[in-house]
Amino acid sequence: MTLVKWNSNENSNLPAFSNLLENFFGRDLSDFVGRDFTSSVPAVNVVETADAFKVEVAAPGLKKENFQITFHNNVLTIGSKTEHSTEDTKGKYARKEFGYTSFQRSFTVPNTVDTEKIEANYTDGILNVRLPKREESKEKSARQISIS
């Protein structure tokens, strides 16, 4: 659906109503309210190696205390909640802003994972979660079988 420019009085010096709508709706919400209002989900890489699955979450600017990692019914859930506020009082005016940011990602984990040995660390803006495979499910190297 597109807006069609229409102006009932072509000689008017006022902008057409559709131009006002285009100016308002054609912009990102962050142009009006600031970047903190929009939310985004961090990029996630999932890598399988011979002995583990590795989940890497790009989340710069957070602290390890901001994350919640849970494992329940073969579902790994990684989430974060942060709140922040600023207050500026000068002279006869005051400004107070606050924000709330959160995300949550869930992954179904195969039965081959040793759930008791899942580990996580947060370094340089990257949350790394390691899900080691059970010994019996790790890939075995190929072996030569002799013919008798």
Rank of each mutant, 00 (worst) to 15 (best):
residue 103 F to M: 06
residue 20 L to H: 07
residue 58 A to P: 01
residue 142 A to Y: 07
residue 122 Y to C: 01
residue 92 K to E: 12
residue 49 T to A: 06
residue 47 V to C: 00
residue 121 N to P: 02
residue 139 E to M: 10
residue 103 F to D: 08
residue 111 N to Y: 06
residue 43 A to R: 03
residue 42 P to E: 06
residue 120 A to R: 02
residue 60 P to R: 02
residue 98 F to S: 10
residue 20 L to R: 07
residue 67 F to Q: 13
residue 84 H to T: 03
residue 58 A to Q: 11
residue 133 K to I: 08
residue 92 K to A: 12
residue 55 V to W: 08
residue 18 S to Y: 05
residue 32 F to I: 00
residue 64 K to Y: 14
residue 127 L to V: 00
residue 136 E to G: 06
residue 43 A to H: 04
residue 49 T to D: 07
residue 45 N to H: 02
residue 66 N to D: 15
residue 139 E to I: 09
residue 148 S to P: 10
residue 32 F to S: 02
residue 108 T to L: 11
residue 29 L to K: 07
residue 96 K to N: 14
residue 138 K to V: 08
residue 83 E to V: 12
residue 2 T to W: 11
residue 143 R to T: 04
residue 97 E to Q: 11
residue 82 T to K: 09
residue 21 L to E: 05
residue 7 N to V: 01
residue 95 R to A: 08
residue 109 V to N: 04
residue 56 E to F: 08
residue 120 A to F: 02
residue 6 W to H: 01
residue 140 K to P: 04
residue 112 T to G: 07
residue 133 K to D: 05
residue 24 F to W: 14
residue 145 I to A: 09
residue 44 V to W: 03
residue 88 D to V: 08
residue 147 I to S: 06
residue 60 P to K: 02
residue 49 T to M: 05
residue 97 E to D: 13
residue 13 N to E: 04
residue 16 A to T: 02
residue 15 P to E: 05
residue 36 D to G: 02
residue 109 V to H: 05
residue 101 T to R: 05
residue 96 K to Y: 15
residue 74 N to K: 03
residue 133 K to W: 06
residue 23 N to D: 13
residue 39 S to A: 06
residue 82 T to Q: 13
residue 70 T to F: 06
residue 132 P to Y: 10
residue 22 E to H: 07
residue 44 V to N: 04
residue 33 V to C: 15
residue 79 G to C: 13
residue 25 F to M: 13
residue 20 L to W: 09
residue 45 N to D: 10
residue 128 N to A: 13
residue 145 I to M: 08
residue 103 F to K: 08
residue 115 T to P: 01
residue 101 T to Q: 06
residue 91 G to D: 13
residue 146 S to E: 00
residue 7 N to A: 04
residue 47 V to P: 00
residue 58 A to G: 00
residue 42 P to W: 09
residue 115 T to N: 14
residue 50 A to I: 02
